Simulated scan of single mutants.
Amino acid sequence: MLAGRLTYATGAFVVDDVPVPEPGPGQVLIKVEAAGVCLSDLHLIEGMLKPATSTEVVTLGHEVAGTVHALGPGVTGWQPGARVLLHAGELSPAGAVLTRGVDYDGGWAEYALASVHTLVPIPDDLPFEQAAIIPDAVSTPWAAITATAAVRPAEAVGVWGAGGLGAHAVQLLRLVGAAPIVVVDPLPGARQRGLDLGADLALNPRDDTLREQILAETGGRGLAAAFDFAGVADVRDQAVGCLGAGGRLVLVGLTDQPLTITNGTAFSYFQQKIFGHYGSVPAHIEQLVDLTRRRRLDLRRSISDVVPLADAGKAVERLHTKEGDPVRIILRP
């Protein structure tokens, strides 16, 4: 079968022929129908992210949907042909979080192995392309909003970066009743996308009046919560400066750069907070599947393009250059 393989030591990525894996006890073999291309995949190829294990070569892809193809020994409760998405990760026997497509083989392949407890059934009318992106592109901002930041109705919020995660954050913030929602992004197309998805105000981070405009939009209160989905050091300092009393900054975008606070006295005086955030838990994914099933969440606009698995390298390059300003490019085996 074809699989998109990354060698960590060299950063070499290639779509190659590899054997179809055999499911072991407690595993199922999934016929992959769709797999998302995420900025984290690019970070892995670039070497900014490293696996938590001693994995040397891995099949990328942590956003995966498909059908059950074969059951491993002792697996019950599933039938071949069942439509599923896969959790992006699972716990190791030692309790560490291991990520699919990072610490073990993921879904940039024609077939993928999955532990049976990582399968989530999806309704027949949810396209595989949309289902695949739920475990990360949608579940990560959902967890950041509802769990880490605990956003409440009518709270003013800011979204820095309206790409793969931030675009969904706007939709999800509207869903929980946040208001106003301010999108900050240097790309005009991304700002317009934020407005189209329900933001109340879209600003360029290079605008010298950004803070004043946010204060005006919030009646002088500032933001109750600000989300960094860009993973850019300067973004974080700018976002802190837009927080109101008791405001919290949630770091979702990944960066290896230092975190600095320009005015530490004001930060302490106003009792502001900074939270790190990573991923989601199974309950968040199940909630989102139910929300899409009940038509509370529409992911159709999230699919920027669908390309063959053989062109995975080109898809990564498009994400790197932001060609077409994609939300999510989907690989189809």
Rank of each mutant, 00 (worst) to 15 (best):
D237W: 00
L254M: 10
T262K: 08
F275K: 02
G247V: 01
V235N: 04
H277V: 13
D237E: 09
I285D: 12
Q287L: 11
D237H: 10
L288A: 05
T260H: 09
S280I: 01
Y278M: 11
Q257N: 07
Q271W: 00
Q287K: 12
A239Y: 06
Q272I: 10
R236M: 13
D256P: 00
G253L: 07
I274K: 06
L243C: 04
A233W: 04
A283N: 09
A230Y: 02
Q272N: 02
K273H: 11
R248Y: 05
Q287N: 10
A239Q: 02
L251K: 01
D234G: 12
G253K: 06
L243Q: 04
A283D: 06
H277G: 11
Q257D: 08
A230F: 08
D228Y: 11
G253Y: 11
G253M: 10
L243P: 08
N263E: 13
T262G: 08
V232S: 01
T262Y: 04
A266I: 10
V250K: 00
L249F: 07
G244H: 01
V252A: 02
V250Y: 09
V240A: 06
L249V: 15
Q287A: 15
Y269P: 00
L288M: 10
Q287V: 14
Q238E: 00
Q238M: 05
D237M: 08
L288S: 13
R236T: 03
T260K: 04
D228W: 09
R248V: 15
L259Q: 05
K273C: 13
A233S: 10
F229G: 00
P282I: 09
D256R: 06
V232Q: 09
Q257L: 05
A239H: 02
P282A: 14
L251Y: 04
A245P: 01
V252E: 00
D256E: 06
Q271C: 04
N263C: 10
A266D: 12
K273L: 11
L243M: 11
G241A: 07
S280Q: 07
A239N: 01
